[in-house]
């Protein structure tokens, strides 16, 4: 029995719903970070010189010293695969023939968890360089999915 099948011997249950819909602001840092992705196809970080860290995505504060950060830097589109996984089971419980690949891509001292594309599972390697592939500018909407995936270079 998979997780998604109901046990016919289960106790009678009351069905209820929790209505949860949220509108999230991007935040002061997020406004800057996502506008750069949408309008310029750039990935921005912020620099804390005192702690010698470049935060990606950029933040308005350093989590180490709680200092204010206003030095924005373009960290480029190329990062390094820090680790990855192959998603064989889909969210609905079915098996995929070709796994989806997600990776943590190091950019600056931070990075992004994102999809990898244009690569076969056999060719994956930790430490490989990958580059962000953006949607055409007209289709971007200020979302992390404006980056379609990262591909090897």
């Amino acid at each position: 029995m998979t997780l998604l099948e109901r046990d016919p011997k289960a106790a009678p249950a009351w069905r209820g719903e929790l209505p949860v819909t949220s509108r999230y602001t991007f935040g002061l840092a997020g406004e800057r970070f996502f506008r750069a992705i949408q309008e310029e196809g750039r990935i921005l970080g912020t620099r804390c010189d005192g702690c010698a860290r470049t935060y990606v995505p950029g933040t308005i504060f350093c989590e180490r010293c709680l200092g204010e950060l206003d030095k924005w830097v373009d960290v480029g589109k190329v990062g390094e695969v820090h680790t990855y996984t192959l998603l064989y089971e889909a969210p609905d419980g079915s098996q995929r023939e070709t796994p989806e690949i997600v990776a943590f891509v190091r950019l600056g001292d931070g990075g992004l968890v994102h999809r990898l594309g244009e690569v076969e599972p056999e060719a994956l390697a930790i430490g490989m360089s990958v580059q962000a592939v953006f949607k055409p500018i007209a289709e971007r909407e200020g979302s992390i999915l404006d980056i379609v995936y990262f591909r090897p270079i």
């Binding site: 999230y24 602001t25 991007f26 935040g27 002061l28 840092a29 997020g30 406004e31 308005i60 504060f61 180490r64 010293c65 709680l66 204010e68």
Partner: peptide, 25 residues
């Protein structure tokens, strides 16, 4: 409705509290 995220609001208050007593992290 704040434009700041929840963590940015937290930071603003924490930052002000530290500055008010001239302390650092």
């Amino acid at each position: 409705r704040a434009q700041e995220t929840a963590k940015e609001l937290s930071w603003q208050a924490a930052h002000m509290a530290l500055e008010s007593c001239e302390m650092t992290m």
